[in-house]
Amino acid sequence: MSSENDKDGQPSGTSAGSSEDSKSLSKEDAKKFYEEKGIDFSPDVPVKPKPIPQFEKSISDRVSSKFGSKVTVDYVRAGRIRVSTKKEDILDVAQFIRDELGYDHAESVSGVDYPDSKEIEVVYHLGSYTDEKLATQVLTLATRVPREEIPNPGKDSSRMTSLREVFYSVEFHERECFEMFGVYFEGHPDNRRLLLPEDWADIPPFRKDFKIKGR
């Protein structure tokens, strides 16, 4: 079913014991079957306009009023706020978020690779233990760093300021992000490999141009 959108176009691994005849039956048949059955094959996400919650709105307003055009508030939902900023400003924004808003730890740091726009997005999910009201809140702080076609981790232009001084808990997350996406974090004391083997010589594996074998 996923074959329809298989972008690399490679044939998927054939199952053991599948005979010659079954290969002639492509996956189009499966699709045809669905169409015959009248099952909608392209469902859309139902768009439900939700009311913007007040408390979250007040937090995002504080961020945007402080930094103005430097930050963009992407969305405000129940319990979730997403703020994106430029990589130059992230340290200031993070410090503001920690000191003024009361978010005190990072839950995760994830990278998202966007090869089309030649950017890697680094997303910090920040939470709070100290502030009782913020317990349900997760603030998503995103920034984008440039992405190079031929990565050279640590030495190319995809680098940004580490937030370890602000949120101590990002230490291992940033190390993971470094090895998986090749984003170098300046100011991180320990930019070493974490999960990958020490002799890993391929490109950072979570980039979109790193293909899993057979897919």
Partner: peptide
């Protein structure tokens, strides 16, 4: 078989 494709690839169709 299609359902198994992304999971274990254990099912093949035979004559």
């Amino acid at each position: 078989s299609v359902a198994c494709e992304g999971i274990a690839e254990a099912i093949g169709m035979v004559k």
